[in-house]
Write a protein that binds this DNA or RNA. Structure first.
Lengths: 160, 160
DNA sequence: GCATAATAGTACTAAAATCGTACTGTTTAT
DNA sequence: ATAAACAGTACGATTTTAGTACTATTATGC
């Protein structure tokens, strides 16, 4: 599936809600986005660590975007919440992967990683917010709705 | 992190070991790749379902690539093992995401999904196997080795 | 025809990552 | 001083992933 975590998605929503530029408390944001306050709070902290939002402490404090929406990209967000983009374990440098000796493809995945990273870096937050298709929505090579569940896997055969 | 699962990586290794075109039993492949036989067997079955390998049953049977290495791409492999590439849950069509009503960014992620899918589709198995950098290894925007573990998370503070 | 070697399919268990929550401390405006 | 807000850490439950075991089916070769 190659998915981002739900928290990363939430983080994007939170950043989007700060797009106006004004200061907002975690509670405000939770209210606006309908995400749970503890979760919002936790994510804002991570985003602050990553330098994507600025925090103001004390009463009447809150958070605001540290940079403009044009200066924050998708890779930044993933990076802040999930850590650096790396498709495979060995791409992270450590590489105690067990089959490393016979593995012919590690380099390949790392290169793909790079390509994906570039794609993610190219997409800025303000583009994420635009509803009209700013860049072409390339055809998914098959309609994605169908096989979400029936994936052939060892597990239970599903409700049908 | 945006990672593929280890099984997908294994699947690639397995396909790579079949690149010669000859017929090989699951046991042979397990031996060559140093991946456990049950795991190899399971993955080969999934790859067969996806049409990436052909199986020959009975004694002296085995598996072989169903298409040339130039006709199998990275997206095919991920698709076979993990299901269709979709960055977010809502991108899969179902979309019982809870905050859908106020979510401004869903479409954005779906578009990114498309871009990534295109990148993955562009990379063929034979390119994955080439060791010399066939396409440019774009600079990761920071050295990825450093923060694999120290990711700020709730869990235990680690050995240090 | 029967034994053998191989894939096909299914069920199950254990381990790990993820997600969300709770609690305690610190800073600052009123 | 008090209250509002961020900062940091710890924790538990759920979900996903990974790996194993077992049975059925198919084909070869004697």
């Amino acid at each position: 599936m190659l998915r981002i975590s739900r928290l990363t998605d939430y983080a994007t929503v939170i950043l989007a809600s700060l797009a106006g530029g004004s200061l907002a408390s975690a509670a405000d944001i939770a209210d606006r986005t309908h995400i749970g306050l503890p979760t919002v709070s936790k994510l804002l902290k991570q985003l602050q660590h990553a330098g994507l939002v600025r925090s103001v402490r004390g009463a009447r404090g809150g958070y605001q975007l540290a940079r403009s929406t044009a200066e924050i990209n998708a890779a930044d967000i993933i990076d802040a919440v999930e850590g650096p983009v790396a498709l495979t374990e060995c791409a992270s440098g450590a590489g105690q992967c067990g089959i490393e000796a016979t593995c012919q493809v590690g380099h390949g995945w790392q290169r793909i990683s790079g390509a994906i990273l570039r794609a993610l870096t190219d997409v800025k937050l303000d583009e994420l917010l635009r509803h009209d298709a700013a860049f072409s929505p390339p055809d998914l090579h098959r309609p994605p709705a169908a096989r979400w569940r029936p994936l052939v896997r060892g597990g239970k055969p599903g409700p049908a």
